[in-house]
Design a protein around this nucleic acid. Structure first.
Lengths: 342, 342
DNA sequence: CTGAAAGCGCTTACAG
DNA sequence: CTGAAAGCGCTTACAG
């Protein structure tokens, strides 16, 4: 800190030959030490490292990039549409997770906005060797263009591409089926036997998958379904679904709601009917967000590790860049968070 | 599109000598055309440009960066703290605005997370010539370290640094005083004469500035204060402040609330008392967010142009990088959005 | 284990 | 207006 250069010197800074001279070795040897080559004497390594420390040397990124043909940069491709993207804290969290993880690696994360007026611009940027790989976070862009891009550049998708999935691409996403099963299994483990569900819209794959997970967990435990009503992920729809469930013939001692917002709505109805949670009816859901902590009682839920998804996307891309084999689908770890509703 | 190379070729791609050969000129001349040098024949320019187009040539960024000592990259420094940062849509919007604007320039935007465990890491990165400039968005980091950094690297702050402001630094921020005055002036223009305020915490500079703006607008119009109660930006505190205002001696026909959340709380109280908005009491506030559109009636407010702030930060940094003179403080344009509450 | 040399792809004085 | 040459700061075969 004390002896660091200031002003424009900061941009030039100490150079490899400076290190080499101070250490009394050649540039080649200094470079080998820097890059962790095994073929260097212990003593030489020490001398070079000392020189590096003394000078506060850091390799020039451009020079290194030029010769290695690696940029050490990855792009996060995000859609331009504000409403669908930045307004959604989900995406902000994915980006944060990715940025945090990237900061622990040698890669820089560049934000690449896919302009609606010129979507090809982002593609050009990506194809021009500006980055070593790309993370794609937009449904919109998950078109055949990107599928094609992933043949010439390592690409990891954070969303399922609209066009069918072929073996060439790599996706990091949460396993909705497992998340639903995890919540349902938890209800079963706590002794519930008649478990209903408030499902998400069956027109969406996530909605279908979560319902399937609930069903599977029941089947695996030898239990039958105790009711199933569909909502649209809003609290109001959750409340309405709960009303229908209560009006139904079969009783139930637990409910798995496919989203926290719907669970919150359902809780209101139970409360207004004097049905105690969790004594009379246990509730478990998915999404560890503000809706699960502000309800009474707070909701047992499955944390989708959204920030972890961002991190996993980067980690997966790193493997791809290194040329390692990567499965087409990398699930994001999920976790049950137990609270008062079960 | 049709003749583009695929596979690893995408990373090498056409090179400057390829262009030069195809155009029948030297690398020097080709380079001059690419960089818009005036000392080239029209005909040569045409030939080179044709070769560039035919080859789909794009300059290698690393090579150019190496010789120019410019990275064409700027960093957006953001704090690690999730709760205070990514949870806040305000920051996501600033980032979006910056990324959008950057995509229209020659600069790439890199996300640089300031790790709490090793805050010096971000500084090292910045000092090492990895970027041409930095945008700083964290209060936390706006310490003397960054003030010092801004002496060796173009830096634009999106927040007021905690330590005093000296002439050396550059800030892009909204003018809270003006925003408050704008809202208050609007109330005055619509005929209100007894205008109270629900202020923000006077322990914060934004809180004080907004109160000052309200006061200034009244004074400019020759009006006196019709009440002033402090809140802490939460809806509950806005409701409480409104109760106190109503309990006070002097009547009022309008209220300027220093934040939309407080205005929302105040509206509830007015509604429960049967006080009509805007007939009996007009309300105007600051922040054009979800709280202003979901209330009854929706709130007249001042849009702080948060995305515009991000854009202005980038634009300001560009000017700084070019060596242009930039004022210490660049205000972000604000705008009155008129809705039903006034 | 180490060094001299070539080269990554560009830009820019320097001559002409 | 144009070209030959040097150089940006690194890495990496190639010899030794």
């Amino acid at each position: 800190m004390t002896t660091e250069a200031t002003g424009s010197d900061a941009l030039s800074g100490p150079t490899l030959v400076g290190v080499a001279e101070l250490a009394g070795v050649s540039r080649s040897t200094a470079s080998r030490v820097i890059n962790g080559s095994p073929n260097v004497t212990e003593e030489t390594v020490a001398r070079v490292n000392e020189a590096i420390a003394r000078l506060g040397y850091v390799p020039n990124r451009a020079a290194r990039s030029l010769v290695r043909r690696r940029t050490q940069t990855i792009a996060m491709v995000i859609p331009e549409r504000t409403a669908e993207f930045f307004a959604d804290p989900y995406f902000a969290e994915v980006i944060q997770g990715a940025a945090m993880y990237a900061s622990s690696t040698d890669y820089s994360l560049t934000l690449l906005i896919e302009s609606e007026s010129d979507p090809a611009k982002a593609h050009r940027f990506l194809r021009r060797g500006n980055v070593d790989g790309a993370l794609v976070l937009s449904h919109y862009s998950a078109s055949s263009d990107y599928l094609e891009l992933s043949r010439s550049l390592p690409v990891v998708f954070g969303v399922r591409p609209a066009g069918g999935i072929d073996a060439e691409i790599h996706i990091v996403d949460v396993d909705n089926d497992s998340a639903a099963a995890l919540a349902t299994e938890h209800l079963i483990e706590t002794g519930r036997t008649r478990i209903a569900t408030i499902s998400g819209p069956q027109s969406t794959s996530a909605g279908r998958e979560r319902q399937r997970g609930w069903h599977r967990a029941l089947a695996d435990a030898g239990l039958g379904e105790a009711g199933c009503e569909e909502g649209d992920y809003t609290p109001a729809s959750g409340a309405a679904a709960m009303e229908r469930l209560l009006a139904g013939a079969g009783g139930f001692d637990a409910v798995f709601a496919a989203s926290a917002q719907m669970a919150a709505g359902a809780l209101e109805v139970l409360s207004s009917r004097g049905i105690r949670v969790p004594e009379d009816v246990a509730v478990a859901t998915i999404d560890n967000n503000v809706f699960t902590t502000t309800t009474t009682p707070p909701l047992t839920t499955v944390d989708l590790h959204t920030a972890g998804k961002g991190a996993t996307m980067v980690a997966t891309l790193e493997r791809l860049i290194r040329g390692e084999h990567v499965e087409a689908m990398t699930p994001v770890p999920i976790e049950l968070v137990r609270r008062g509703s079960s």
